[in-house]
């Protein structure tokens, strides 16, 4: 059995250290070691996006990344996007526009949408659909997810303008 690796990561602003087998997937390290059960395992072949987190500023499917690859990285999960007292705009608009049903895809969906709005703060509907195409949902038919993201963009841009 190969030696365990000493892994150091920063997750949602917290420094974390642990020993892990190199083959451990990032999604399991987050879920089982750090108890961050927001990101989920859906397909395991990088098609569904339920495991989406942000690693060093990139949207990443954490079922297709070994924990060793993430060693030293800064990671953000759904748990790091908002807090019960200060929800992320997307967390509010997803609820407002019924952008979720069973909730299983939602953490990955919102985490990806967060990054999408950083890449493109003012997307068209088509750009949202293309930019969210790495995340599958079986419940909503996407229409309200798209609506939720466009609403979040509008709110964030409105807040930006108000601040300027």
């Amino acid at each position: 059995m190969p030696d365990k690796m000493h892994i150091k990561v920063t997750v949602n602003g917290q420094d974390e250290e642990f020993l892990a087998e190199p083959r451990e997937l990032l999604i399991y390290a987050l879920r089982e070691r750090l108890n961050l059960t927001g990101p989920h395992v859906g397909c395991e072949t990088s098609h569904c996006g339920a495991c989406t987190v942000i690693v060093n500023g990139k949207s990443v499917k954490s079922c297709t990344m070994f924990v060793g690859q993430a060693n030293g990285a800064e990671i953000t999960t759904i748990e790091g996007l908002g807090s019960p007292d200060a929800l992320h705009v997307l967390q509010e608009t997803f609820r407002e526009h019924h952008g979720l049903q069973c909730g299983f895809c939602t953490p990955g969906m919102i985490t990806r949408a967060h990054k999408l709005l950083e890449e493109n703060p003012n997307p068209t509907e088509e750009e949202v659909r293309f930019g969210m195409a790495g995340n599958l949902c079986r419940c909503t038919g996407y229409q309200n997810i798209v609506k939720s993201i466009l609403a979040a963009a509008a709110q964030m841009n409105g807040a930006q303008e108000a601040a300027e």
Partner: peptide, 9 residues
Amino acid sequence: IADPQVRYM
């Protein structure tokens, strides 16, 4: 090619 997340990697 693929989707946004996969294109990041």
